[in-house]
């Protein structure tokens, strides 16, 4: 039982990170109908930004400011940096292709992803960098009940992810920007005719989605400790699985999918073997795609001609 609960805790933490990345995938897909393969790499850049902010504050073992301040600075910088990167990528690589055949932006996205991975490799090298979280947020802080360890970092990650998701939900449902985003997602041309500034709305979507990925990157750094240039690829694939499982283009679906994938992965590691972890997650994706192509919460869309 203890083991089971521990897997649940781990799964929820990982799942929160995946869910945040999945949200970005889903939002971008919603407004542009574009699978942004570069999204996982934006997450990786966010993790790197967090790492360098941490170093700027003196490094994990010799922080010159209170831990809370450092954390806020890390999250804010990663969100801002990743957000701007996302906006830049959209402006430069995707916008000129908006009216091209569907396949063109997809191939470009593949190129952007590959470019980002290798640019970071060039800049920072291939060595793995460590956040060393336990030296400024000791593992002992947190809840330890009946053999189940819930460290403070994990609580922080889950709570922050939940707050961000609720915030995003409010933004999409209640604000003018959210309304504009839904309108653009529904029908871009009609939205433009109604006076919605489509370009600006799309830029905002990319900013928010990428900022969430940046935050997820810092979270991953805090929880898993390791940051390296290829971390975005597999995490991106899994978050993508989460978005698809939940129903791509669907915000609550992405959250649900993220948590499910996190739990599946954690149970696969705990009960079967960590070797097959990726295979199981990818297998789930193919299964969902074959049986329920619109995801768990997605609705089948009819194509109008």
């Amino acid at each position: 039982m203890t083991f089971f609960l521990q897997q649940v805790v781990d799964g929820l933490t990982t799942g929160s990170v995946y869910a945040l990345i999945a949200l970005g995938y889903s939002m971008v897909y919603g407004v542009l109908k574009l699978l942004n393969f570069a999204h996982g790499d934006i997450y990786m850049v966010g993790a790197f930004i967090g790492y360098f902010v941490l170093q700027a504050f003196g490094g994990a073992t010799a922080l010159v400011a209170p831990v809370a301040v450092v954390l806020i600075a890390m999250f804010a910088a990663a969100a801002l940096g990743a957000g701007l990167l996302g906006v830049g990528i959209e402006r430069f690589a995707y916008r000129p292709l908006r009216e091209s055949p569907r396949i063109a932006p997809l191939i470009t996205a593949l190129g952007v992803s590959f470019f980002l991975e290798n640019a970071v490799l060039l800049l920072f090298g291939s060595e793995t960098r460590l956040y060393s979280t336990s030296s400024f947020i000791p593992f002992s802080t947190g809840v330890h009940v009946a053999g189940v360890n819930i460290s403070l970092v994990r609580i922080l990650v889950v709570v922050l992810a939940a707050v961000l998701m609720v915030g995003l939900r409010v933004l999409v449902e209640r604000t003018r920007l959210g309304k504009a985003m839904r309108a653009v997602a529904f029908d871009r041309e009609a939205a433009e005719m109604m006076g919605i500034q489509v370009d600006r709305t799309i830029s905002a979507t990319f900013f928010i989605g990428s900022a969430l990925a940046g935050v997820a990157g810092v979270m991953a750094g805090l929880v898993f400790d390791q940051v390296f240039s290829l971390m975005g690829f597999i995490a991106g694939l899994k978050a993508f699985t989460a978005a698809v499982v939940g129903g791509i283009g669907n915000v609550p679906g992405a959250m649900l999918g993220g948590l499910l994938i996190g739990l599946a992965e954690s149970f696969a590691t705990g009960y079967i073997s960590s070797t097959f972890q990726n295979l199981i997650v990818f297998g789930i994706l193919i299964g969902v795609m074959l049986l329920r192509p619109n995801g768990l919460l997605g609705r089948a869309t009819l194509q109008k001609v």
Partner: peptide, 20 residues
């Protein structure tokens, strides 16, 4: 070796945008 990879990524981006 990294330059080779960067070049490949750039080929995809630039070609799709400039001369699809």
């Amino acid at each position: 070796s990294i330059t080779r990879q960067i070049l490949l990524g750039a080929i995809l981006i630039v070609m799709m945008n400039a001369r699809p």
